[in-house]
Design a protein around this nucleic acid. Sequence first.
DNA 1: GTGAATGCAAACTATTTGCAAAGGT
DNA 2: ACCTTTGCAAATAGTTTGCATTCAC
Lengths: 140, 140
Amino acid sequence: MQIMTDLKSAGYRLTQSRAAVVRIIDEADGWLRPEQVHSQAKKYCPSIGLVTVYRTLALLVEHGYIRRIHFDDKCHGYARVELSHGHHLVCRGCKQTIEIAGTEDLKPLMKQVQNETGFVIEDHLLELVGLCRECQHIPT
Amino acid sequence: MQIMTDLKSAGYRLTQSRAAVVRIIDEADGWLRPEQVHSQAKKYCPSIGLVTVYRTLALLVEHGYIRRIHFDDKCHGYARVELSHGHHLVCRGCKQTIEIAGTEDLKPLMKQVQNETGFVIEDHLLELVGLCRECQHIPT
DNA sequence: GTGAATGCAAACTATTTGCAAAGGT
DNA sequence: ACCTTTGCAAATAGTTTGCATTCAC
C-alpha cells in the first residue's frame, strides 16, 4: 500500500473509501470499470458512493498508480500500473490485464519517428489485445 | 473516393450524407470529433443530422476506412486510415494526425510477448502523442 | 414503388458538479 | 475545531434507439 503512504505525504487524507478502492484495484487480476470498482469496494467500505470511486480513480491516475484502459468500443477501465510506463496486454475474453515492460522496444521506432516528422514525442500508448491461453476457444 | 465505390459494391446506397461525411474526413488534416464532423458536413449536406454522422462513422470504421482515436480524457475522435494497420502520431497542439507505418517495428515485440505470455495477439493500438514542429512552443 | 437510410426526439450510459453532512487530523 | 472528503441528487456530455418520413435505386 505504498500509494496510501504517498498520498498521505502529499497531504491527502487516508479515508476508508480511498483504502477500499486501492484494495480492490490491488486485488484485481485485470482491469475494472468504475462501476465494478464501486460494487466491489462496498465489501470494504459499504457506504462508498460511485462518485467517490470516480474521484479516487482520478486521483490514482494523477499519481501514476493506475492507468486508464481504452477499448475500441466506448468502455473505459482502469488497471494498476506495475511497471513505469510499461504497455499493456489485455485479454478480450477474461479481461485480465498484464503489464509488459516496453519502452525500450519502442525507443528506435520513436527516434525514427521524431527524425522523420519533426515531432517531439511526449507520451505513448501501446495496447495489445488478444486472447490468453484459457480464452483461446472464444470465437472472434 | 474509393470508399464510396466499395460501399456501393457492398450493397450500401450512395447518399448525400455519406458522401458529405467521407468528404469532410478526407479534407481534414487530423482527427475530428463526431460533433465537428457534423457541423462541417453541413457544408455539403445542410440537412444532415448528428445521428447520421454517428451511423456513418460506425460504417466507415467497420469498413476500415477510418479509425477511432482514443485520448486519456474522454474524447474520442476519428481519423482516416492511410496505411493498413499503421499506427498514429497525434499532435497535442493542433491535433493533426499522421499515420506511421508501423506493424513491422512491433513484430519482434509481439512475438516475444506471445511467447512469454501464451496470449494470441489479435490487435494492437499504438498511439504516440507529442507536439509537431509548429506547436512546440505550447507548454506542457 | 420498395426498402434502406435519414432526421427528430427521446432514451440511455458514463461521468461531473453543487452542496450540506460526515470524517480525518 | 478545522477543513478535506464524502454521498446524494441533479446536471452534463456523448452516444444510441424508436419510428414516421424521405430518398436512392
